[in-house]
Nucleic acid binder design. Structure first.
Lengths: 255, 255
DNA sequence: CTTGACCCTGACGCAACGTCATCCTTTATG
DNA sequence: CATAAAGGATGACGTTGCGTCAGGGTCAAG
């Protein structure tokens, strides 16, 4: 029993284009009528197509499917496990996005007075996870890929209580910065306290993935001014000039 | 303060190509130096870019982002909610795929004697969910989109106990079909019981989304023979010719 | 004045088909 | 048997969001 293109397409519930495409890609094999070039598929191809569609369901790229169908059982399992990891990662990604989108919606609705912190926090997590932020890029250059990776993992694995400590430290940091802004004294108690707050924040944020160093601390301080995302964050919460102030304080004490 | 392309790109941690692309798409606005066509972006564009990247994170297509940034608060929320639904759907999809892939891996490893039923079940769920199966297509033609949609939701929302009832009905169905195959009597008790089993299965599978009708029942019976996926399924479990037998029985009694 | 370092504008590539447009057979109908 | 409708085939462009050259003009420094 031979199927023509449209018959096979109907059987499998896909388009003719798909059938032809698969044949062109070498995933399906058709006999050709030498007169009119019509394609004819036998039952074995029906089975093949079913297999292809099964793997396609799992979002495996056609190239992989092609290999898989020639591969040993062992290799198939390896491929599937890899795909499994990829899908799990995707799902985790979606979870983060959903959390973020949810916060944003509630913010827009005004139901929740979402602080910029939350937004920024979500944004940071996402950026850290994707290893894409300039922050990460710069640190990475200086301290190597592995260190940053550990730091990221550490950040994401942070638990609720650490998270709250971080927020508390930030709160005090802004309080101190407020004082410094009022008395204009970089050598005041408040300034020193601000520096300590920020240093503690950093150490906690980095966890044991990366030991504190004054150089790195100053590098980050510079970014607070150079990167508008961070500048905006600090200026929004502490008033105009806060990012610059913080940078100056850090540069003064981080030695 | 004006940023050139590369400066803005670095700030945001994206490529120059991305910046130019966004400008071409009208998402960012640049002043041009009339002499050399150099782009210059002011701070407002930095903010815009941040917003764009935020929404891009949520996997919103650029076209949507373009609209959103001109839209009212209300419309933004609507768009975000839509996106939220889409993402949730994606997550559910991933969950199903992961279940399927897990079963397949264990099957390949031989750890689990996955019955074809499980595979088929997963396949069916997936197909139903995607509204793509020929089964669905044909029913849809006959009874309209809304009915099928309800049926699908119903199927997917099915609980464990219903699921087990369905399997029990199928088991009995195959037992009766076995008997009919042996005595070759379409008018036997077994044949009538098989018909009743299948009818009950159908009604349970459709839930209250769609009232039973003999025409639909016969349509489905025909598909059991026409569609090799279904044919294979029945023949594998009940022996060669089972699909045809079942179709004949249904055509006889469904009036 | 030359040399990099930058900027610009095309234009192709990617993944997996959907969707024409154009042309050739096969099949059905009058 | 002529013609029309139906179905098959082969390009080729469109889609999405950029990555990645290639080719060419521009600007600051030595």
């Amino acid at each position: 029993m031979n199927y023509q293109t449209s018959a096979l397409a109907k059987l499998a519930g896909v388009s003719q284009r798909t059938i032809r495409y698969y044949e062109n890609e070498g995933l399906l094999i058709a006999k050709r009528d030498p007169q009119n070039q019509y394609r004819y598929f036998d039952e074995s191809q029906v089975d093949r197509l079913q297999q292809i569609l099964f793997y396609r369901q799992l979002d495996l790229p056609l190239a992989q499917i092609k290999k898989i169908m020639l591969a040993s059982n062992y290799e198939i399992v390896a491929t599937l496990q890899q795909q499994q990891r990829a899908l799990k990662e995707q799902r985790a990604h979606l979870d983060r996005l959903l959390a973020s989108i949810d916060a944003t919606i509630r913010h827009q609705k005004g139901e929740l007075d979402m602080t910029d912190l939350e937004k920024f926090q979500a944004f940071k997590e996402e950026q850290l996870n994707q290893n894409e932020t300039k922050f990460g890029a710069e640190i990475r250059e200086k301290y190597g890929e592995a260190t940053v990776k550990k730091a990221n993992e550490n950040w994401l694995g942070r638990n609720q209580s650490d998270f709250q400590k971080l927020q508390a430290l930030e709160a005090d940091l802004f309080k101190q910065l407020q004082l410094v802004a009022e008395n204009h004294d970089l050598y005041s108690e408040a300034a020193q306290q601000a520096f300590q707050d920020h240093r503690s924040w950093l150490e906690l944020a980095w966890g044991d993935a990366h030991a504190y160093s004054p150089e790195a601390h100053r590098g980050i301080a510079d970014m607070y001014v150079a990167d508008p995302r961070f500048t905006k964050y600090y200026d929004d919460r502490g008033g105009l000039g806060t990012a610059t102030l913080l940078r100056d304080i850090i540069n003064l004490y981080a030695k």
